Computed example of a mutant assay.
Amino acid sequence: MLVESELSRHTEASFSRALFLQRATERSLEIISEATRHLPDALIATKPEIAWGEVRGIGNRLRHEYWRVDSGLIWSIVMDDLPALKTAIEDLLRGIEE
C-alpha cells in the first residue's frame, strides 16, 4: 500500500513536519473511508474485529472537522490500524473472488 510505503521512510517526528505528506495521507484515508461505505453491511459483518464505524467515520472527520485532526492521529491510524484493515479487505476480496 502506498501510504504504508511512504510513511515507512519517516518517523512520527519527521511526519509531523511534512505537511504535504500529511495532507496526502489524509486524502488517502478519506478515499479508503469512502470506499468502505460501499461495502455491504453483511460483508463487513464477517470481519467484526475491524471498527468499521470508525473507518467509515474518519473520512467525515477529515473533511468536516479538520481542525480536530493532528499529525499524531494520522500517524497512529496508519501505523496501528491500517495494517489490520488492509488484511481484512484482502480477505474479503479473496472471499468474493472464490
Rank of each mutant, 00 (worst) to 15 (best):
L85S: 05
A18Y: 09
L62D: 00
A45S: 06
H64G: 03
I96F: 15
R9K: 15
T46Y: 00
H38N: 13
T11C: 10
V55M: 05
E49P: 04
T46H: 12
E90W: 00
E97W: 08
A42R: 12
D41V: 02
L62I: 12
L43S: 01
M1L: 12
A18G: 06
I77C: 10
Y66K: 02
F15I: 07
R37V: 06
A51T: 05
S28P: 03
P40F: 05
H38R: 10
P48N: 06
R68G: 00
G95P: 07
R68Q: 10
L93F: 14
I74D: 08
M79F: 00
E6F: 12
N60I: 04
A45G: 04
I31N: 11
A13C: 03
S33I: 04
L19E: 14
R94W: 03
M1Q: 15
L7Q: 04
E90Y: 04
R17T: 14
L2W: 11
M79L: 04
D81M: 08
S14V: 02
I32R: 01
K86G: 12
G57C: 06
N60T: 08
T25K: 02
D41M: 05
I89G: 09
L93P: 04
L43F: 02
I77Y: 10
T11D: 05
E97Y: 02
E4P: 03
R23L: 14
I32M: 10
W52G: 10
R27M: 10
F20G: 08
L93R: 09
A84V: 01
R56A: 13
L92E: 06
S71P: 13
W67T: 01
L21I: 13
H38L: 12
D81S: 15
L93V: 11
S28R: 08
L21A: 07
R94E: 12
I31D: 10
F20L: 14
R56Y: 03
D70E: 14
G57E: 07
E12R: 14
V78E: 13
L21T: 11
D91R: 13
L82H: 07
R23N: 12
E49D: 12
L92V: 11
R94I: 00
E4A: 13
R17W: 06
S71D: 15
R61V: 06
H64D: 02
P83M: 09
P40Y: 04
G59W: 00
S16W: 01
I89T: 07
L73N: 05
I77L: 15
I96G: 07
S71W: 02
V78K: 06
P83C: 06
L62C: 05
Q22G: 07
A18F: 08
D41T: 09
I74E: 08
E90S: 09
R9F: 10
D41K: 07
S28F: 05
S28Q: 14
E54G: 14
A18I: 02
R63N: 14
R37L: 11
I50N: 03
E26L: 02
P40D: 15
E49I: 01
I89K: 01
D81Y: 06
E34Y: 01
Q22I: 03
L92G: 04
W75D: 13
E4M: 08
